[in-house]
Write a protein that binds this DNA or RNA. Structure first.
Length: 596
RNA sequence: GGGGCGGUAGCUCAAUUGGUUAGAGUCCCGGACUGUCGAUCCGGUGGUUGCGGGUUCGAGUCCCGUCCGCCUCGCCA
């Protein structure tokens, strides 16, 4: 093997006339005939042009170089030469080339199914890319995403190390607990019929570490939730997880704010401004979403007081509902560019998210026009006054129970923001605070935690925990960047009595809590410090830092939407003996097992 | 579990209303070329139209089922 002196991205005119050795892959071959051939050699750091010519070597070497094919793995020895007239300003190394004097072919490549070529990758089906991931990852853009991920991990460890955090590993094989997402489970061989669960997060372990006196814990850890993936969600994902003792909400927010600032500055050269704190109620009322995208306005405005005067049945019947309301969004100067088709898109968005429809009007010098104009006409003046609509604008309305109304309009807002190209540029973060403690779930006929069952209720709400659970706020907080939730945490319950009361509200009997969470309640008994923490979604943070909207692009070996790894072809079958050893019998329809 | 889009050469795509031997670019193979840089030019190989069934004289195209990928609703404390 040729031991390299440089990588393929670093040679400059400064190294002129130096003898160098490079290792890498053949990116392209430009064969000019019997006496001249150009080879672009690529490694993780870049691409360098190597030239084999009769003036510098014998014919046999040129012939061998001409036999190279894309993705052959090679090493070369040569001399750096300045390229004057023929320089290529598009490449970092474009002002030099290496005149080849020796060539070692480590490994010839069969004709590869896909080429690590950015031009082609733009159109390549993801299925093919995932199946041949080793080749896909050779692409510079994929390499740079992996690099960004590494840079973030390295910065994270360094940052928290300096603040006195200690990285502690927590187990992967734990026990299944109620609440939360569906668990991935692992059968026990030693205890047939019993199962481990893979952690949805190290939540309880990090709390126990606080009880153990670790004081400040952090971990970059895998979390697993057996739920359907999305474009920004994988069943298996990575969290930056941390927990602090003797802390409060303000301190956690302060440290994490400076962490995010540092990330943006070091990795993107961006100064992130002040990060406002927005109460959950305000976020929902104004943005229709608990993770508001502050890069554009299009606020939801309440017009419930004007709605009765319209005589519009959609409005009046909404107001009759429990917590019914009517809200409006002004789309400034949209009248011209918004065709009926775009309005229909917004209407469809509203419907998908639970609204019956989305009334709208176009505003002209003479007031409302089109859509629901005849209903809006009676309140035109008051409405103009209230929401500041101008001629040339479009106004869209939502009318329903509060939750349906704001969430549907919140989605309409996002869609409209995209259609109006308002999402460009900028980094806007906010903290969302004052979350409700519980949410009533109609299907299950019970309260569930908005955050998780270990989140502390606000002290002032403690005595209403049982009497009015829906009204209790928690000491929880989410960090939102450009409309994406990148972190969430809370101050935890450190009083076993309060913890038991919360479990009770969630409908867990004392027996059940003892069985499922006994170890936590036990630990809290022996002097638990006040503590709290947060978990950051590492994958999502890297997505934002690398500007991709596909989480699979920031994970080296991701899974598809049905949880398969197309490269290793997991999940796969296991041997009969393995099943027997685990005392597991499989009961699947024949059709499914026969298929392959 | 529901909705939407898609699956044709190794890769990216085309194929009129159901009609001849399923085409093109690229990759690959062969040839030409001493300054290319998404090299160019000439020639060539390459197909179970995801899979199974049905309708038809005839199916890439129509129907039914199924598998896979992407987006999305539910779900994701």
């Amino acid at each position: 093997m040729i031991k390299r002196t440089h990588n393929c991205g670093e040679l400059r005119v400064m190294e002129e006339d130096q003898d160098v050795r490079l290792n890498g892959w053949v990116n392209t071959i430009r064969d000019q005939g019997k006496g001249l051939v150009f080879i672009d050699i690529r490694d993780r750091w870049g691409i360098t042009q190597v030239v084999f010519e009769l003036e510098a070597c014998d014919e046999a070497l040129v012939t061998e170089a001409r036999s190279l094919r894309r993705e052959d793995c090679i090493g070369i020895v040569g001399k750096v030469r300045r390229r004057d007239a023929s320089s290529n300003p598009n490449m970092g190394t474009g002002h030099i080339e290496v005149v080849g004097g020796e060539l070692v072919i480590y490994s010839r490549a069969q004709n590869p199914p896909i080429l690590p070529d950015e031009h082609e990758a733009e159109n390549m089906s993801e299925e093919v890319r995932l199946r041949h991931r080793s080749l896909d990852l050779r692409r510079p853009s994929m390499q740079s995403r992996l690099q960004m991920r590494h840079d973030l991990s390295a910065l994270t460890r360094e940052f928290f190390h300096r603040f006195g955090f200690m990285e502690v590993e927590t187990p992967l094989l734990i026990r299944s607990t109620p609440e939360g997402a569906r668990d991935f489970v692992v059968p026990s061989r030693v205890y047939p019929g019993k199962w481990y669960a893979l952690p949805q997060s190290p939540q309880i372990f990090k709390q126990i570490l606080m009880v153990s006196g670790c004081d400040r814990y952090m971990q970059i850890c895998k979390c697993l939730r057996d739920e359907d993936p999305r474009a920004d969600r994988q069943a298996e994902f990575t969290q930056i997880d941390l927990e602090m003792s003797f802390t409060d909400q303000d301190e956690v927010i302060k440290i994490m704010t400076s962490f995010l600032r540092r990330v943006m500055k070091d990795l993107k050269g961006m100064e992130l401004g002040q990060i406002p704190q927005i109460p959950w109620q305000e976020a929902m009322d104004t943005w229709g979403c608990d993770r508001p995208d502050l890069r554009f306005e299009l606020h939801l405005q309440d017009i419930s007081d004007l709605a009765p005067d319209t005589g519009f049945k959609v409005f009046t019947s909404a107001l009759e509902k429990d917590e019914g309301c009517v809200k409006a969004i002004v789309l400034p100067k949209a009248a011209k560019s918004f065709t009926r088709k775009k309005i229909d898109l917004l209407d469809e968005t509203a419907k998908i998210h639970g609204a019956g429809g989305m009334p709208w009007v176009r505003w002209t010098e003479d007031g409302p026009e089109g859509g629901a104009a005849k209903f809006i006409a009676p309140i035109a003046e008051a409405l103009q006054e209230k929401i500041g609509v101008q001629p040339g604008d479009i106004v869209v309305f939502g009318a329903d129970s509060w939750e349906t109304c704001v969430t549907a309009l919140g989605q309409v807002r996002l869609r409209a923001g995209k259609l109006l190209s308002m999402l460009k540029g900028g980094w806007r973060a906010c903290w969302v605070v004052d979350f409700p403690m519980f949410r009533w779930v109609e299907d299950r006929q019970r309260w569930v935690s908005e955050h998780h069952p270990f989140t502390a209720p606000r002290v002032e709400d403690l005595d209403r925990l049982e009497s009015d659970p829906g009204d209790v706020l928690s000491a929880g907080y989410d960090l939102v960047l450009n409309g994406s939730e990148i972190g969430g945490g809370s101050i935890r319950i450190h009083d076993p009595e309060v913890q038991q009361r919360v479990f009770n509200v969630l409908g867990l009997t004392e027996e059940e809590t003892q069985e499922k969470f006994g170890f936590l309640l036990e630990a809290l008994k022996y002097g638990a410090p006040p503590h709290g923490g947060i978990a950051f979604g590492l994958d999502r943070l890297v997505m934002i830092l690398t500007g991709t909207d596909n989480i699979r692009d920031v994970i080296a070996f991701p899974k598809t939407q049905s949880g398969a790894d197309l490269m290793v072809e997991s999940p796969g079958p296991i041997d009969e003996e393995q099943l027997e050893e685990l005392r597991i019998t499989v009961d699947t329809p024949e059709a499914e097992t026969a298929e392959a």
